[in-house]
């Protein structure tokens, strides 16, 4: 009885290690398989369309609304201290440093990550991946690699668009509606926001999130149990684990970047 318990704990631990190992091998195989640029690039462009362009609407709409809400909430606090002109840097910094990369990461996990997992999982269950191997096509290189690079490429761009639209949303509420001075809004923001410290660090964050989210999504799909149940579980796992990873990593990165 006790022996069984130890056995199951040990098994779970080894399973974890095996999972990490499999995921690393998969990533390695996908990235460092001999790249064929001429053949690979159209696949990459197609995936950029699926992963990036089709996520554009949700990113833009949520960016706009988050920017507007930030401005509205910030205003109610700042106006008490007569500091409502500092709304610009408040909206700008919180979007560029935190909300841009993080919310984009979460939306990306939900919108694109789950789709990637389901797609690859279904390819596996319908044995398309095995047939590719039969035809001497490496599915890692043909299926996984373009999706990974596309995710890595798209998410920083989406995060940038998110932040920019969010700042305009803040401008919309702060300046057009609540009547903050437009010159102050922009000039104080310009004096507080630093291109390297804030904008580039935000981009670095979103690159890290892109790697993690896409990796988790692809691994979960590639290793899904090829049944209806298995794919549904894999998709859920992708969204849950990718979101948690984004939030956890965000804290770590923030400590390193802005924690002093």
């Amino acid at each position: 009885m006790i022996l069984n318990m130890f056995q199951s704990v040990g098994e779970a631990v080894f399973d974890r290690f095996a999972g990490v190992g499999r995921a690393s091998i998969m990533l390695f195989g996908a990235l460092f398989g001999i790249p064929n640029f001429r053949k690979g690039f159209p696949l990459f462009v197609k995936q950029v369309y699926v992963v990036g362009v089709q996520s554009l609407t949700i990113i833009m709409v949520s960016g706009l609304f988050i920017g507007m809400v930030l401005a509205l909430q910030g205003y109610t606090v700042l106006v008490d201290y007569g500091a409502e002109d500092s709304l610009g840097p408040m909206v700008g910094l919180s979007l560029l440093r935190e909300l841009g990369p993080v919310v984009t990461g979460l939306l990306f996990a939900g919108r694109a990550g789950s789709a990637l997992t389901a797609e690859i999982g279904l390819m596996k269950s319908t044995e398309q991946l095995s047939s590719m191997e039969m035809m001497a096509i490496d599915p890692l290189r043909r299926v996984v690699a373009p999706r990974f690079w596309a995710g890595l490429f798209c998410m920083p761009l989406l995060a940038i668009i998110f932040s920019t639209i969010g700042i305009f949303g803040g401008h919309l509420v702060g300046v057009e509606w609540l009547g903050i001075d437009a010159g102050n809004f922009w000039s104080i923001m310009q004096s507080k926001v630093d291109l390297v410290d804030d904008v580039f660090n935000g981009v670095i964050k979103s690159i890290v999130f892109a790697i993690v989210v896409t990796w988790i999504a692809l691994y979960k799909g590639y290793n899904a149990i090829p049944t209806a149940d298995g794919i549904s579980k894999a998709t859920t796992d992708t969204v849950v684990q990718a979101s948690l990873a984004v939030l956890g990593l965000d804290f770590v990165l923030t400590v390193f970047m802005f924690g002093g």
Partner: peptide
């Protein structure tokens, strides 16, 4: 069509980056 949309997407984000860099306005 896909290429056009991807090109649009990339251009849009480069534009956003420029806006962020020069901080608009």
């Amino acid at each position: 069509k896909i290429e056009i949309m991807v090109g649009f997407f990339v251009t849009l984000s480069i534009g956003a980056m420029i806006i962020l860099a020069f901080k608009v306005a």
